[in-house]
């Protein structure tokens, strides 16, 4: 596999990161170099093996559907950069 040309601004938008053109060029160069290195994975035949998401077997974990104590409204809002009337304040999202 060869490393395709990186559309860094597209990746940045998917990542929700604003990058200047200069930053974009710098990251594109570094990421290409890192992705080239990933070709080391090609050395081994990986086709017949199950992928591991975890190091140990993991299964769905269930608990009883009963309420537990959580944050109060004031505690949940304590770190909010902007809040109003016991709610998080965000910018307008509807036209």
């Amino acid at each position: 596999m060869s490393t395709p040309t990186l559309d860094i601004q597209r990746i940045a938008t998917l990542s929700r990161l604003k990058l200047s053109e200069e930053e974009g060029a710098q990251y594109a160069g570094q990421l290409s170099k890192i992705l080239d290195y990933m070709h080391v994975l090609e050395k081994h035949d990986l086709s017949g093996v199950e992928p591991s998401a975890h190091a140990i077997p993991m299964f769905d974990v269930w608990r009883e559907d009963v309420s537990r104590p959580g944050f109060t409204c004031a505690e949940a809002l304590a770190n909010a950069p902007r809040k109003s009337a016991d709610q998080f304040m965000i910018g307008k999202v509807v036209e």
Binding site: M1, L14, S15, L31, V49, E50, S52, A53
Partner: peptide, 24 residues
């Protein structure tokens, strides 16, 4: 950026899935 790229459509199999197999 790197993580978003390897998970993005079209590259998932080439990087993420391959790495999960290597992890095994």
């Amino acid at each position: 950026l790197l993580g978003t790229y390897v998970l993005s459509s079209g590259y998932y199999d080439a990087y993420y899935l391959k790495a999960q197999r290597a992890r095994t």
